[in-house]
Structures are given as structure tokens and as C-alpha cells.
Design a protein around this nucleic acid. Sequence first.
DNA 1: TGGTTATTTGGTTATATTGCCAAATAGGCA
DNA 2: TGCCTATTTGGCAATATAACCAAATAACCA
Lengths: 106, 106
Amino acid sequence: MEKKSKAKYEARAAIIKALAHPTRLFIVDQLEGGKRCVCELTRMIGVDMSTVSKHLSVLRAVGIVQDEKVGQQVFYQLKVPCVLSFLGCVESVIKSNAEAQMELVG
Amino acid sequence: MEKKSKAKYEARAAIIKALAHPTRLFIVDQLEGGKRCVCELTRMIGVDMSTVSKHLSVLRAVGIVQDEKVGQQVFYQLKVPCVLSFLGCVESVIKSNAEAQMELVG
DNA sequence: TGGTTATTTGGTTATATTGCCAAATAGGCA
DNA sequence: TGCCTATTTGGCAATATAACCAAATAACCA
């Protein structure tokens, strides 16, 4: 692969990789409903707050979310809304797999 | 997170994770142009064929591509075309990041 | 100022991923 | 049959991830 082309795919992969974790997908889904602070997300997810904070920093690092400090709390929000439509395709992969399964079964 | 909900996000993440690698993104891009055999992809990418084969099996395992044996060769093709539109969003994240950078610079 | 809450960062351990090499498998052809 | 080509699989070493705990920051309030 060419050097330039390689860099392009690495940049894309970095963004996709940031979404490739169940907790981070959950976070993105929650942020569809508006801004959420770290403490809220932590309660919903049920893991250590430091873990949630690190997941958020992964999303922030690639520009999917942005943060805003309000008093003691830090609120996160989606920066690129299309990430959601993106998930629509993922659903159709799942659906396609399920249909293939159904054919095998009956 | 609820058990059912957790399973849903894990299923989605598994599919996204399969796309979260530069070589696999390159492969998906190439398959947009039609079926390709492992040997062709190997030549284009320039890594060991066993490595390419493993990447393809990752994509196949989650149902993004399907394979077909023709003589001695195995041809792979996209099974879920929307994966490509999916990448459109990734591009817009990159674009958004670039714009933010431009603002800082100039 | 001192204490409390919210968040991030550093460190550690367990697990997953990736790429290479070598070996196994499978089809085609002399 | 025996050899060659295409592909997959197993094993190994290097690197990356993820979760927890503890400690560091930062803002608010008494």
C-alpha cells in the first residue's frame, strides 16, 4: 500500500477504533439524548468512574465528542451527529447475519 | 447497564471492531470495486498472505464479507454494501477535526 | 482555610491483537 | 500419483487495551 494511502486508512481506523467498544457505543447512544456529565454516565454504566473517564477521553481524542466544564461537573456531547447514522449500518449487518441464521435453521 | 442492553452493544462493537484496522478498511474499499482473490489483495497490501487471510477471516466472521472458492483461488466480496456509506461519516469526523485545526492555526 | 465532590491521571495486571514464520490443507495439472 | 500454487491454521513475540485502585486536580461550600 502507498504511504499516503496508508496514512488515510490509519486515520479512518483510529476513528472507528474509538467506537469499537460496547461502553463507548452506549455513551454515544446516550449522548444522542443531549449532554451528559461523567457522573451520570458512570451511574448508567455501572463501572468505575475512572474507566468511564478514560472511555470519554478516547472519544474526545478522535473528535467524536467534546467536553465542557460546568462547576464541578464535566458535560460531554456529540460533536459529529452522523455517528448515529453510522450505527444504522451496523444494525443492518446484524440483521443480515440474523437472516442468514434463520435460513439455516428453518 | 442492563444485561440485554449490554449484549446489544457488544454485538455492535464486534462488528465495528472488525472494521477498526487500516488493512481491513483498505480491503473493504477494494471490494467496493468487485470480487477480489486473496492473492490480489496480498499484492496490493504488501504484507504476508497469512496476515491478509486472517484479516479477511475477521471480516467474514462478523458477516461483512463472504468468500467463494473458484479453482485454487478464494474470492471475497462485500456482503453488506452499506459499510461504505458508513465510511462517509468517518470522513466527516476527519473533516471536522481538520476544520477545528484550521481555526486554531489561521 | 479546610473539607467535599467530580474528574482525571498514573500504575498494575490480565487479556486481546497483530504480524511473521512454518506447517497443514486443497485444488489443478503433468 | 506427485508437484505446484493458493489459502488457511498454529505458534510465538511484541504491542495495545481495558479495568481496577490509589493519588492528583479542580471547583464549590461551610
